[in-house]
Design a protein around this nucleic acid. Sequence first.
DNA 1: ATTATCTATAGATCTATAGATAATGC
DNA 2: ATTATCTATAGATCTATAGATAATGC
Lengths: 192, 192
Amino acid sequence: MAARARGEERRAEILRATLEVIAERGYRGATLGAVAERVGLTQQGLLHHFPTKEALLLAVLADRDRWDTGAGPSGGAGGWPLGLLASLVEYNAMRPGVVQTFSALLGESVTEEHPAREFFTRRYERVRADMAASLRTEYGERLPGGMAPEAVAPLLVAVLDGLQYQWLLDPEAVDMAAAFRTFVTLLGEPPA
Amino acid sequence: MAARARGEERRAEILRATLEVIAERGYRGATLGAVAERVGLTQQGLLHHFPTKEALLLAVLADRDRWDTGAGPSGGAGGWPLGLLASLVEYNAMRPGVVQTFSALLGESVTEEHPAREFFTRRYERVRADMAASLRTEYGERLPGGMAPEAVAPLLVAVLDGLQYQWLLDPEAVDMAAAFRTFVTLLGEPPA
DNA sequence: ATTATCTATAGATCTATAGATAATGC
DNA sequence: ATTATCTATAGATCTATAGATAATGC
């Protein structure tokens, strides 16, 4: 049990370091050597825990399937109330590292043969469905402007991602949280 | 003149090929060899026209400063009317290559020491200002919901970028143009 | 002369495999 | 025994420089 625990700890350390390195250089730009160094291992020592670079990325993704804009308080049919989402955006504004890892990977994932592509495709499918459910819980079948929750969900997701890029590039110029609240205002008042 | 013209043509060919390769592998994943091959040159022959890989990327960016969601019919104080923007989104949905190049570069650009970072930072600053101007032209000082054009501009940009990622990952599942029109509806009717 | 390309190659990296050695658990 | 790490190293690439050669323009 102790050995297992130590192994798990090492694994977690490695995944954390991998997130950092990906934030700095993306997945393609990340090297096993850089990750290894950060946890005090040789590159070959690292490969004992994860057999290939791709396996390491997939482990990171599997581990972090509940990220920032992620699945939310999932399982619960309601999903993310918009108020909670706004808090999440505020929280994210305090941890640029995580946002940067996520955004760099999303950007890379649209290129060919990228190992994160399938992960993101599925994730967005799920997130859109979750968001639609949240909107339905909050607004019912139609939003104030007359749109269906399913039509607005992709916009909600797009706003979250798009604001992250603008904010990462120029944190002084973009207030992610304020902008998101503006978007919520745009959606209109939910029926009481 | 003929020589100059031939040189310019070659240069243009190279830039086109570079865009393609970046769409497929991103900038970090792109190799000079892949670009060279596409225009029938050796990698060293390519370096005669652009002295370094970074110079090649910067040339691409300088050349394409008037991209898709870009500066628009700029100069004109009005900027992009929302209707024209919607057409642009529709047009983009027909050229995934360009959208993919752009999105891959944007994603990479948030990582450290990325040569496109400054380009995108400045570009977004400008695009937000242009969008705010467009919104002001269309709506005046306040949008129907009461927000200032400057508060909505980053959202408009975020929606455009965010939808591109969702669409690139799953074109069947996301109708970029329809989603954008929904967003415009959300903004409300401009005063007549 | 100048421009465009090519061959040769230096110098860095990078991933991954093989096999040895040390540490830990039973 | 099993797990964790290390050294050595193969095998691929990649960017960029040096210098030769061919093509073009004056």
